[in-house]
Computed example of a mutant assay.
Amino acid sequence: MKDYYKIGEISEMYDMSRDSLIYYEKIGIIKPTRDNNGYRLYSISDIWRLNLIKELKSLGFSFKMIKEYLENRDLDSTNKLLEDGITLLDDQILRLLKQKENMRKRMESIDKTASSPNLNSIELTYLKERKGLILNGEVKRDEDFDLLIQKLQKNYNNKFNILGNNNLGSVFKMNSLEKGITTDYESVFCLLKDNETEYNIIFEEGYYVTLIYSGDYTNNKEHIKNMFDFIEENKLIVAGNPMEIYRIDIHETENKNEFITEIQIPIKC
């Protein structure tokens, strides 16, 4: 067994990049010497340190914790490190359980939406007050919607998810609808839970003419026309801009036949 190893040998031995080894040296958790040509030489002492660093990293310890431990090691500090490790694992387990529950709820949301029995039926529905996050911006293409949703997420520290979220939507431009244009929107939004404390819009409670349809978004032209015909026939008054909520969209499926969209038009009664 050799007394010293070069960086290439250590990199291969630990399946670790040279950049990682240089970073370890930079933060002071290993300290290789140099030969006459300036090449790094790793000693047997560096080997046991790397063994320990590799194991501690796999257990989830930060480089700061690893460095502090390597600079002051005895039985007491080892037991303290392991106690801290248990706390870290407990936190990770709790976080993973929350993620698991979140994924289960997303699956339930997708399944419930996909099996909706009221497709293509125009209804006058009473909806309670809803909190939401909204961002104004012109939307004419799917890419515009996704860009604005990303900005909305960033503005509110990723408060909401996208995959399996059936509460994302857009608000139509009323003047475009009056011209028969159903592809122009003025804002994007995400509806939130009732107990949320951080929001920037409240969609008022009241009556809405609603319709849920399946298939490509281009189908909305016919559906919106039928909804406005329903409003006129029943002598109802539109109270605000219609909105479109994407219950199942491109984020869940590439098959446009599986898309499910809800249109809501607020009504003054």
Results as ranks from 00 to 15, higher is better:
3 D>L: 12
3 D>W: 11
4 Y>G: 00
7 I>N: 00
12 E>K: 15
15 D>Q: 13
15 D>L: 11
17 S>L: 08
20 S>P: 03
21 L>V: 01
23 Y>E: 03
25 E>K: 13
25 E>L: 00
27 I>S: 00
28 G>R: 02
29 I>P: 01
30 I>P: 00
32 P>G: 02
36 N>I: 11
36 N>H: 10
38 G>K: 08
39 Y>Q: 03
39 Y>G: 04
39 Y>M: 09
40 R>S: 01
41 L>F: 04
46 D>T: 01
48 W>Q: 09
49 R>V: 00
51 N>Q: 05
55 E>S: 11
55 E>C: 03
58 S>H: 05
65 M>C: 10
68 E>R: 13
73 R>H: 06
73 R>C: 07
76 D>R: 13
78 T>L: 13
80 K>I: 10
81 L>I: 08
86 I>L: 10
98 K>V: 05
98 K>I: 08
105 K>L: 11
107 M>H: 03
111 D>H: 03
114 A>G: 00
121 S>E: 12
124 L>V: 09
125 T>E: 11
128 K>P: 04
129 E>R: 10
131 K>N: 07
134 I>L: 12
138 E>G: 05
141 R>F: 06
142 D>V: 13
143 E>M: 10
144 D>W: 02
146 D>W: 14
146 D>L: 15
148 L>C: 00
151 K>F: 09
151 K>L: 07
152 L>H: 04
155 N>H: 09
157 N>Q: 12
157 N>M: 10
160 F>L: 01
163 L>C: 02
164 G>M: 07
165 N>S: 03
172 F>L: 04
173 K>Y: 12
175 N>H: 11
178 E>N: 12
192 L>D: 03
194 D>E: 15
195 N>V: 07
196 E>L: 10
197 T>G: 09
198 E>Y: 09
198 E>R: 03
201 I>E: 13
201 I>R: 09
205 E>N: 15
207 Y>I: 04
208 Y>R: 04
210 T>C: 15
210 T>G: 02
210 T>H: 00
213 Y>I: 00
215 G>W: 08
215 G>M: 01
215 G>F: 05
216 D>S: 13
219 N>G: 03
221 K>H: 14
228 F>V: 03
229 D>K: 15
235 K>N: 14
235 K>F: 06
238 V>P: 05
241 N>R: 06
248 I>P: 04
249 D>M: 07
250 I>Y: 14
250 I>V: 13
252 E>I: 06
254 E>P: 06
265 I>P: 02
268 K>P: 03
